[in-house]
């Protein structure tokens, strides 16, 4: 748990994504590795194979987006990753350690923030809830909560209840809760799907700044191709029935990402159309 924030000591990292990948190449083990993952529901004749064979990996400090046509099993994949559903084949590893059940090194931000926050707890207490069983020293817990709320820009709302906040703010509370947990891998399920466009841009940039500051590995499931290209160091396009990896696309957009200039780059458009045509083809 503590290693995640050991990395935060070198906050304000200015290296580009490209050089980051180069220094992680020296690591033999990616942070998250998924190998031949399979998942089916039901038994016998009723058995329905959702995920056939998925293999991909995400390095430390990378943002990976999982994209695919709707209904392909993105959420199923994510539930397997988070240990909410048992997989029926293959294996998953964090730092080479095989996963079995909800991993302590992982936090999940759900799509539906209104169903993931406790309405009877204030913002601060929502963020505190997952920390209780860690039995942290009081000061450390308080510091983690403060830092997490500051990171998402909600320090002023600590004493409010989630339902008193806007949708975008509620999702930021959910992100703060995940940050205070200090996971090594942060997984998000269509986290920005139900907020307005402006908030969405803000949350995307928040996501990137978290990665930069905390060197966290972030996996985002999204159906929004533009978002995937904007956020990712690599895009894992999945498709087919049962689902498999169509292609892993390395996103090599230069420099720091910016909502206006990055999206206007020719490379951005190229990656976007490449990803989109992949998914289109998979749908046919």
């Amino acid at each position: 748990m503590s290693t995640a924030y050991a990395a935060s000591a070198r906050a304000g990292r200015t290296t580009s994504n490209k050089s980051l990948r180069e220094d992680t190449v020296t690591q033999t083990e990616p942070r998250l590795r998924v190998e031949h993952l399979a998942k089916s529901y039901g038994r016998g004749d009723q058995e329905k194979q959702i995920i056939g064979d998925l293999t991909f990996s995400v390095d430390k400090g990378e943002v990976a987006c999982i994209v695919g046509p709707s209904g392909v099993g993105k959420t199923t994949l994510l539930k397997c990753l988070a240990g909410l559903h048992p997989s029926t084949g293959g294996a998953m590893y964090i730092d080479g350690k095989p996963l079995d059940g909800p991993p302590a090194e992982m936090a999940l931000v759900f799509q539906d923030y209104s169903r993931s926050l406790m309405p009877w707890l204030t913002v601060e207490k929502n963020v505190r809830l997952p920390l209780r069983h860690m039995r942290l020293p009081k000061a450390e817990a308080a510091e983690r909560i403060e830092d997490a709320l500051a990171a998402v820009g909600l320090s002023h709302a600590a004493k409010q209840y989630p339902w008193q906040l806007s949708g975008g703010m509620q999702q930021r509370v959910a992100i703060a809760r995940a940050l205070a947990y200090r996971p090594e891998v942060l997984v998000m399920d269509e986290p920005f799907a139900s907020v307005d466009a402006q908030t969405r841009f803000e949350l995307e940039d928040l996501c990137l700044s978290i990665r930069d500051k905390l060197d966290m590995t972030i996996v985002v499931v999204t159906h929004d191709i533009d978002e995937a290209v904007y956020l990712s160091d690599r895009i894992v396009a999945i498709g087919g029935k049962p689902a498999g990896v169509l292609e892993v696309i390395d996103v090599d957009l230069p420099g720091e990402r910016d909502q206006i200039t990055t999206r206007a780059l020719p490379e951005f458009a190229e990656l976007r159309s490449r990803t989109l045509s992949l998914i289109r083809k998979a749908q046919q």
Partner: peptide
């Protein structure tokens, strides 16, 4: 109790007594 809240309990590995007293009880309140 909403499956969303149950999933949150699992992901954050809340202990049994935490789930019961801090989530299920207030949710059913």
């Amino acid at each position: 109790v909403d499956t969303g809240l149950r999933d949150v309990c699992s992901v954050y590995r809340l202990r049994k007594h935490e789930r019961l007293l801090r989530v299920y009880l207030p949710a059913a309140g």
